[in-house]
Design a protein around this nucleic acid. Structure first.
Lengths: 129, 129
DNA sequence: CTGGACCTTCCAGTGCAGGGGAAGGTCAAG
DNA sequence: CTTGACCTTCCCCTGCACTGGAAGGTCCAG
C-alpha cells in the first residue's frame, strides 16, 4: 500500500505520515524498487493508536515512548498509566489556572462595564486594565 | 535611563525591551550620541501596562492594538472591553475542552487501574488507550 | 591603558505538530 | 507519447514570546 492510500485509510495526510516516520512513530517503511514507501495494512492500526493517544492529550513524544516499549516486546501498560496520571495532573492545573484567569478577567470586565474615557489617563493607558 | 536600568525597574530584561520595540509595543527609543537607547522614566508605566495586559491573558498583538489606540489620542476603553469579552469566551471554551479531556482520561485511567499485560495485543499497542 | 560591565546589531533557536511548495522521478490510462 | 496523479527529498514557514550567542562598540574605575 502506498503512502497516499494509507493516509486516506487512517484519516491523515501523506505529509504527516512522513513526519511520523521521521519522528520515530512509524518504522522506516519498506520501499518498492522505484523508491516508493510500501506499507503493510497493519500500519493503519499503529496510526490509529497515535490518534487515540492524541485524543487522550498525549504529545507525540509520549506516544512514541509507548510505541518504543511495545516495539521492545514489552507491555507498556504501566507506562501508559503513569503518563495518564501525569497528564491528568497537568490538566487539573491548567483548569485551575484558567479558572483563576477567568475570575480576574471577569472582575476587570465588570469594572469596565461603564466606560468613562475621561478618567483613563494617558500614562496608565487604560484604567480598566 | 539606559535599557538595562529600565528593564530592571520594570521587572524584565533588556532583550525583551528590544523585542517589544521591534513589535511596536514601545516607540523607537531616543538614542544617546553613541547610539545607546535612552528612555524617559514614564516608559516604565507603559511596560507595566503590557504586563497587566499579559496578566489578563491578552496577547502582545492585542496589547499593541490598545496602545496604538491610546497613541492615536483616543481612549481604548471600548476596545478593551471587547478584547476582555472575547478572551473570556475563549477561556470558557478552553476550560470546557479541558474538562472534557479530563473526563476522557479519567475514564481511560480507571480502565487501566488493573493492568493485564497479556490482554494487550501487540497490534493495538495498548488496550487501555 | 586595561578590564569589566554595559550597550549595539544580527542570526538562530526554542516547543509543538505539522503545512507549503519546489524540483524532480514513476506509473498507468488514453 | 503525453497527461495527470502520485511519489521522492529538500528546505522553509506557521504562532507565541521570547532567549542565546557572536562580534563589535562604549563607558567608567582603577
Amino acid at each position: 500500500m502506498r503512502i497516499g492510500e494509507l493516509a486516506e485509510r487512517a484519516g491523515t495526510t501523506a505529509k504527516t505520515l512522513r513526519f511520523y516516520e521521521e519522528q520515530g512513530l512509524l518504522p522506516p517503511a519498506e520501499r518498492t524498487p522505484s523508491g516508493y514507501r510500501d506499507y503493510a495494512p497493519e500500519t493503519a492500526a499503529r496510526i490509529d493508536f497515535v490518534h487515540r493517544g492524541q485524543a487522550a492529550g498525549l504529545t507525540l513524544a509520549q506516544i512514541r515512548q509507548i510505541l518504543d516499549i511495545r516495539d521492545d516486546g514489552a507491555a507498556p501498560c504501566e507506562h501508559v498509566r503513569d503518563l495518564l496520571d501525569a497528564r491528568l495532573a497537568e490538566i487539573e492545573q491548567q483548569i485551575a489556572q484558567l479558572a483563576a484567569l477567568r475570575d480576574t478577567i471577569t472582575e476587570l470586565r465588570r469594572d469596565a462595564a461603564q466606560p468613562d474615557p475621561d478618567s483613563c489617563s494617558a500614562d496608565q493607558v487604560c484604567r480598566y486594565l
